[in-house]
Design a protein around this nucleic acid. Structure first.
Lengths: 196, 196
DNA sequence: GGCCACAGACTAACCGGTCGGTATGGATGG
DNA sequence: CCATCCATACCGACCGGTTAGTCTGTGGCC
């Protein structure tokens, strides 16, 4: 039976950290439970003591990233700043936080379709909430006449998130730009595209 | 032993078409060779008569999409039109052709990391050529003073391709827009972002 | 007769998950 | 202060099922 674990305990945390690294490196399906427990220096008994299934590990990783990004978006979008500033900050922040958790992000966008139906539903629902929160910013600016209405807000959001979701395909830590610089540039592209 | 097959013969073509559909629906790792041959109405003997391995199927699908898009980009980029028109056409075309071959595109961007090292290298090299061809258009416009130089051309290309690569995550054929309309909108966003 | 295009049974490896057992340490009670 | 007890944490052998890939056979066409 799966036990509650809120990140408590050293072993489950180590298992999760190692699983994250291995999933990001080799992919979910190509990483066996045996490899995870070997790398963590425990056995399968330990893993199944803390997690209900291999899918649970994935779900745990997803939850971590979703909670973090939703929280950061809430903070940025809820400030009293003008909408253009809020959108720019949110657009840059989602890039930075995706880079800072690049392993989580890699797994997320590569392996989401591996989840079971009910877990997939939950993840998609949370993802949609995030999308809608972001889209509301765009629409607010459009209605205020600050942003162009040439493109539907939905498409604008997909356009920006597309780049974010693909970050792990081309971002290299040893590259010349810092995460913040990349975030600023991509946010700048978005704001430029929205100029009336 | 793997035979040469350039799409010739009815059976190998059917196998490839069915494999494409199944890989797009359920993912590469979750689709067994047995399921493919069952759906095609043949047996494993036939599959391994034409293809060297399961990975070969993937590689074949990749090659098909890469060749098609490279060819279409060459046609668009090589016209004598002004650079802004060429870039807009290329940006819209890559969206349209990705939607028209949405199964190939889905598999491509979801399962690329499943390829063996040497095949991955080949695919990446072709992909880079495509990226560079596209980037050259952006740089040409920047040097001509038509496009903003605020953002490095590389980032601009990644930004646009990010959206393209994620198309399969949100594109629905039953949606209100035609592929061409979506392509026009996304190309428009790119061109707007590049205004000086 | 021989070769091409498959059939289909087979194998060896591996996989996620289970289960009975054990070590440890803190609480309890005498 | 010690004996008992029990929950928690973890071990590791094991299982049923699945997988990619192989190999021998065979029917039909040249």
């Amino acid at each position: 039976m799966a036990q509650r674990n809120g990140g408590r305990g050293e072993v489950p945390q180590r298992l999760l950290a190692i699983a994250t690294r291995l999933f990001a490196e080799r992919g979910y399906e190509r990483t066996s439970v045996q490899e995870i427990v070997d790398a963590a220096g425990v056995t399968k008994g330990a893993l199944y003591h803390y997690f209900g299934s291999k899918d649970d590990l994935l779900h745990e990783i997803y939850g971590r990233l979703l909670r973090l990004q939703q929280q950061r978006l809430d903070a940025v979008a809820g400030s009293g700043a003008p909408v253009a500033e809020r959108l720019r900050a949110a657009a840059a922040d989602v890039v930075v936080s995706s880079i800072e958790n690049i392993d989580d992000a890699t797994i997320f966008f590569r392996s989401m379709h591996q989840l079971g139906p009910e877990q997939l539903k939950k993840v998609r629902a949370e993802r949609r909430r995030y999308h809608e929160r972001f889209r509301a910013l765009v629409e607010e600016g459009q209605q205020a006449g600050i942003f162009s209405t040439a493109t539907p807000a939905d498409l604008v959001v997909f356009y920006h998130f597309g780049a974010v979701h693909q970050l792990s395909q081309w971002y290299r830590p040893e590259g010349p730009m810092t995460p913040q610089e990349i975030g600023d540039h991509l946010a700048d592209l978005l704001m430029r595209a929205l100029r009336p």
